[in-house]
């Protein structure tokens, strides 16, 4: 009986340790797997050719990713520009001004916003944002737009990254010790002056991390963007032009990719890039957050 318990304990320990360690190794598996699969195309075309050529003709064997990369950057940039001010002001309001009752009310709503699937955001974009850009916004600037545009995708994406940015920056703001605010208030500062000069300064690294996390979220988001970005493989000239971001490219062509030579390899290379870029962003922001956490403790 006693030895049975001991054996059980030993087996369980090993198994748990094994699972824990392997979960940390998933990232390496993913990078290796995608790299092996994308090697065929790397052996035919050079990396710089793939990155900086803008001619995309898979049937002719030309794989220039530039339009997609530029499209992704435009859309992500637009989303971040829209989302960051709104989210920061909201987070500051919730953390510094709002009574705790409102803060408690807001939490489940943010959860809900985070839980809504991206297809739903996509549909909403189709129903609300795309027509608005086509009928109201584009005529104001005197240009024609189908509405399927970088701006539409940017708006939808901005909303999708609200929860991440608000959640993380709220946490960071709340970790600023109350005594520090008191010290500033006691010197006769107004609340906003205290926020501006003390709280935000102290919380800055964490807030940067929050923004970077939001950025990387937006960078890889697929379905919603796919539905409203227009998907034209050309380098866009303005935010009212359509664009074709990388994730949409991958998702859209899964059907054909096994029938055209090198196509699957090209798409998996694109996934590898997404993975690596997002990995870098995530690692940076997580490192900042870990340091913030430690400085608080």
């Amino acid at each position: 009986m006693r030895s049975f318990r001991k054996i059980k304990e030993a087996v369980a320990t090993r198994l748990m340790a094994f699972l824990t360690v392997s979960s940390s190794l998933i990232v390496f598996f993913m990078i290796t797997g995608l790299y092996v699969r994308s090697r065929p195309i790397l052996s035919v075309h050079s990396l710089s050719e793939l990155l900086f050529s803008s001619s995309w003709h898979p049937l002719r064997g030309e794989f220039g990713f530039l339009p997609f990369i530029v499209g992704t950057l435009w859309i992500t940039g637009t989303a971040v520009v829209i989302a960051v001010p709104l989210c920061l002001f909201t987070a500051i309001y919730l953390s510094e001004y709002a009574p705790s009752r409102i803060r408690a009310l807001f939490a489940p709503l943010i959860d809900l916003l985070a839980g809504i699937p991206s297809v739903i955001y996509g549909i909403w974009g189709l129903l609300a944002v795309v027509p608005m850009i086509k009928n109201q916004l584009a005529p104001v600037f005197g240009v024609f737009s189908t509405g399927y545009s970088i701006l539409a995708a940017g708006i939808v994406l901005a909303i999708m990254i609200f929860p991440v940015i608000i959640h993380v920056s709220l946490e960071v703001l709340q970790s600023v010790p109350g005594e520090m605010r008191e010290a500033s208030l006691a010197l006769g500062a107004t609340s906003w002056q205290t926020v501006k000069t003390v709280v935000l300064r102290r919380a800055r690294p964490g807030i940067i991390a929050a923004v970077v996390l939001g950025f990387s979220r937006a960078f890889g988001e697929t379905m919603a963007v796919l539905m409203v970005a227009g998907n034209v493989a050309r380098i866009p000239g303005s935010v009212l032009d359509p664009a074709y971001p990388l994730p949409a490219l991958i998702a859209n062509n899964y059907g054909e990719m096994l029938s055209v030579p090198l196509y699957d390899s090209a798409l998996l290379l694109a996934s590898l890039w997404l993975l690596v870029v997002i990995l870098l962003f995530n690692v940076c922001s997580r490192l900042i957050l870990v340091r913030v956490e430690r400085s608080v403790l």
Binding site: S23, I26, L34
Partner: peptide
């Protein structure tokens, strides 16, 4: 482990799709 889980949390689902496919 916590760090890698955080990092995994940030990887977009399309990449998981592509990896699953390989």
């Amino acid at each position: 482990t916590r760090f890698s889980l955080d990092v995994l949390w940030g990887i977009p689902s399309i990449v998981y799709g592509a990896f699953g496919f390989t």
